[in-house]
Simulated assay, not measured.
Amino acid sequence: MVFVFKTNIDSISKVKKVTPKLNRLFPNTKWNFDLEDCDNILRFECNDNIVEKVIFLMKVIGFECEAL
């Protein structure tokens, strides 16, 4: 499944801040940011429904995130 999120992560430095946390919490997923998209998209490919976990993690570390 593919999950798509709108975020306020708009720079490489912010991506670098969340990368270790995303890798640690979601080790068996593929994910990437599209910073050129107006919604600063975060896209996940995985088998489990991780929507709530992703939104919670992003808010805990200080970023906005909503499922699209």
Rank of each mutant, 00 (worst) to 15 (best):
55 I>Y: 09
25 L>G: 00
40 N>G: 01
42 L>R: 04
31 W>E: 04
42 L>D: 05
41 I>D: 05
50 I>H: 05
28 N>L: 09
49 N>C: 07
27 P>I: 08
37 D>C: 02
61 I>Q: 10
12 I>G: 00
45 E>G: 00
67 A>R: 15
61 I>A: 01
54 V>Y: 06
63 F>Y: 15
3 F>G: 01
62 G>S: 10
61 I>L: 09
45 E>H: 08
59 K>M: 07
6 K>D: 05
32 N>D: 10
11 S>W: 06
51 V>Y: 04
45 E>R: 12
37 D>P: 02
48 D>I: 06
6 K>M: 03
49 N>I: 10
24 R>Q: 14
32 N>Y: 15
55 I>P: 03
52 E>D: 15
17 K>A: 04
36 E>Y: 13
18 V>N: 03
33 F>G: 01
8 N>M: 01
18 V>W: 04
61 I>Y: 04
47 N>D: 15
13 S>P: 00
42 L>T: 05
46 C>G: 13
37 D>R: 12
45 E>N: 12
15 V>N: 04
32 N>I: 06
25 L>A: 01
26 F>K: 06
21 K>C: 01
27 P>E: 11
54 V>E: 05
30 K>D: 15
20 P>V: 04
25 L>P: 00
4 V>S: 07
52 E>N: 14
39 D>K: 14
37 D>L: 03
36 E>V: 01
4 V>K: 14
68 L>W: 12
25 L>T: 05
25 L>E: 13
26 F>S: 02
66 E>I: 13
1 M>P: 07
13 S>N: 07
44 F>Q: 12
26 F>I: 01
48 D>K: 14
54 V>D: 08
59 K>F: 03
27 P>L: 09
48 D>T: 04
28 N>Y: 12
11 S>C: 02
58 M>F: 13
2 V>R: 15
27 P>S: 08
67 A>C: 13
14 K>F: 09
64 E>M: 06
41 I>A: 07
36 E>H: 08
43 R>F: 09
66 E>D: 15
10 D>M: 06
56 F>K: 11
40 N>H: 15
12 I>Y: 13
38 C>I: 12
65 C>F: 11
39 D>A: 06
35 L>V: 02
26 F>D: 08
31 W>A: 02
58 M>E: 06
24 R>Y: 11
38 C>S: 04
23 N>M: 12
39 D>Y: 13
68 L>C: 10
68 L>Y: 15
1 M>D: 07
21 K>M: 00
47 N>P: 00
17 K>R: 09
7 T>Y: 06
21 K>E: 09
44 F>T: 10
41 I>C: 05
32 N>A: 06
4 V>M: 09
1 M>F: 04
1 M>E: 13
17 K>G: 00
9 I>Y: 05
68 L>F: 15
26 F>N: 03
2 V>L: 12
20 P>F: 10
35 L>A: 01
46 C>N: 14
9 I>H: 09
8 N>K: 06
51 V>H: 03
7 T>N: 05
33 F>I: 04
6 K>A: 02
5 F>N: 02
2 V>A: 08
12 I>W: 11
2 V>F: 07
46 C>R: 09
57 L>K: 11
67 A>L: 14
62 G>E: 12
67 A>Y: 15
47 N>V: 10
9 I>C: 01
